[in-house]
Amino acid sequence: MSAQVEHKGTQAHLPPHPEKATMESRNKVLGFWFLIGAETVLFACLFGTYLALKDSTMGGPSTEELYQIPMVALATFILLTSSLTSVLGVLGIHRNNIKQVKLWFWVTVVLGAAFLGLEIYEFFEYVHEGHTFTSSAFGSAFYTLVGTHGSHVLFGITWIFCLLIQLSRRGLNMETAPKLYVASLYWHFVDVVWVFIFTVVYLMGKVG
């Protein structure tokens, strides 16, 4: 009869690049890159919709008047830094150094949460100015684009948080390492989208 096989949780020696070491991990990484490709097109459509509708303010504040650039700049640097810390976490995986992995991914989660907090505060300010989801086409397009990015950030920090729990319980092994690698790919993608958001939405908005 075929037997159920439970693989051992930890491995004595983790290969230097666990994300490439087995068919399973290579599949996960490639599959995730493809998901990133699909999400790129998804965000591009939301960008296009935003660009088409950003001038339809229905008498409300325009992009030049509304956007709070200092806050956006701060949020940008926070997110960029979190992207760096996630790659330092992956470096820890490649060096089989679980402490390094935990430290840097925890920092990533904290920075991500800070970004989100700042963004929610920013949205509150805009709502006070009369710029809401239902106030105009511009409002709907803005909140959909930036809000979708924000929900991706939320999903990301939740995901990495869950993986950190798995890491504490089961250690760094062929099962947890590829998952963290893939999560960091996701996190970089989220930062890439933000690069376009601060450029196309906020900076272009300021130029007018």
């Binding site: 890159w33 990133i36 490709g37 699909a38 097109v41 960008f47 296009g48």
Partner: peptide, 16 residues
């Protein structure tokens, strides 16, 4: 595939 995604994305955004 990543380049294709960027190109198609650019087409979508610019067209819209």
């Amino acid at each position: 595939f990543v380049m294709m995604g960027l190109i198609i994305g650019a087409i979508c955004a610019v067209a819209l």
